[in-house]
Design a protein around this nucleic acid. Structure first.
Length: 381
DNA sequence: GCTCCACCGGAATAAAAGGGAA
DNA sequence: TTCCCTTTTATTCCGGTGGAGC
């Protein structure tokens, strides 16, 4: 028998798993009416052929920022079509396109203008982008709203050149989405002043709200009576502790369901959720470690060595160990400084700079933020 | 040969708080 | 006790190099 058919015949608690994917955009977004209205309030101007103000959306991961932006986009495009108004909303995730050049090139591509990844100067690409408005390719008076998701990544990596360019392009409105409120520190005053900026803050979901969200998804994705009644509240409570992260709540639910399938039970039990939590954590660490460049792995290895010896980890000591481990094939402290920052961004470590006064200077105290056993497993896999 | 850009490191500057002079 | 100095390292600034796409 065909292996796929065989597996396909296995009993499943799921009706359709795709609704548990955080990228799935549902018909309505519970507890985000206010935020949707806020976005719509600004974007509605596009329907009268006025460039809407720029919008900045803040909020922690899993608070529905991307979903709301996409939702508003869908609705706006619908109305624009009906009213025959020339509005386009383009979505760019800045983790995929990390420089000004790449974003603008991508925008051109999404709008049907072919642009090479390299070879052209930045100026040429920007010109090509601006020409899209002139050449009447999209008819007259095109209003373009550009959603820049996770813009903090791009700003940190490439500076504010992109915003400078876009704010100086007519008929373009920017909607930036950021996890961090402080991301504006990367924007220079001359650019800040031309951002006609409106801010919308997304609060974390509380446990009750998460229950509502999960309930809605469960109806679509799980078979009837496939969940023990404690499962949803537990997922919600656990995710609420993780700063109200709806994405995490959905992950917990899906992974719990998968565990039920693996074990061949017809129902998802409460303790599967706890098991799912461990598995998610495990996968996260493994994924991160596997994709880490080799030099960064060496840093992590040094970190692990020092943690196991229960030594206090200062940046200087870490660099010493790192040099020992790499035996000559090492990079400068300057680089390690960047690596430490990146590992912190990934949530694997935490740092705290302390000053020890005269004659002892400053240092960074570094702490491993994940289970050492878990990390070791991931490292030697 | 041109451009972008990831990776790299040297040099300048900033920061914190204990030491010590007043 | 107050306040400035000193020390050491964190952090920033900036420019160089080489691979890759065109």
């Amino acid at each position: 028998m065909n292996i796929f058919e065989e597996l396909g015949e296995k009993e499943s608690v799921f009706k359709c798993k795709k609704y548990l994917d955080h990228r799935f955009l549902p018909e309505n977004l519970p507890h985000r009416d206010e935020q949707i209205k806020s976005v719509a309030k600004y974007w509605i101007e596009a329907l009268s052929n006025v460039t809407p103000p720029d919008v900045t959306i803040y909020g922690k991961t899993g608070t529905g920022k991307t979903a709301v932006a996409k939702f508003a986009r869908k609705q706006l495009e619908q109305v624009a079509r009906d009213k025959n108004v020339n509005v386009r909303v383009e979505y760019i995730r800045c983790t995929d396109y990390t420089t000004e050049y790449q974003v603008i090139a991508r925008l051109c591509q999404q709008m049907g203008q072919d642009v090479p990844y390299r070879g052209w100067t930045k100026g040429e690409v920007i010109q090509a982008f601006r020409n899209l408005f002139k050449k009447n390719v999209f008819g007259k008076n095109l209003i373009l709203i550009i959603v820049l998701d996770e813009i903090d990544i791009l700003l940190k990596n490439d500076g504010d050149g992109l915003l400078y360019t876009l704010t100086r392009t007519e008929n373009v409105s920017i909607a930036s989405i950021s996890n961090y409120v402080e991301f504006k520190q990367f924007i220079k005053p001359r650019v800040k002043s031309s951002l006609r900026d409106r801010e919308i803050v997304f609060p974390p979901y509380n446990a009750h709200q998460l229950v509502d969200i999960l309930n809605e998804r469960v109806q679509m994705s799980f078979k009837d009576k496939a969940l023990q009644k404690e499962v949803i509240p537990l997922c919600a409570a656990m995710a609420a502790r993780e700063e109200g992260d709806a994405r995490y709540a959905l992950d917990l639910l899906r992974t719990s369901g998968e565990l039920a399938n693996e074990k061949g039970t017809e129902m998802v039990y409460e303790n599967y959720v706890r098991e799912a939590k461990d598995q998610i954590e495990h996968n996260k660490v493994t994924d991160i470690v596997m994709t880490l460049p080799s030099q960064q792995k060496k840093v992590l290895e040094s970190l692990l060595y020092l943690t196991n010896r229960k030594e206090e980890i200062t940046s200087g000591r870490l660099y010493d160990i790192y040099k020992e481990i790499t035996k000559g094939d090492s990079v400068s402290y300057r680089r390690i400084f960047d690596f430490i920052n990146e590992l912190e961004m990934l949530g694997l470590i935490s740092t705290k700079t302390v000053s020890r006064g005269r004659g002892k200077g400053r240092t960074n105290i570094i702490d491993l933020q994940c289970d050492t056993q878990l990390l070791e497993d991931a490292m030697w896999q």
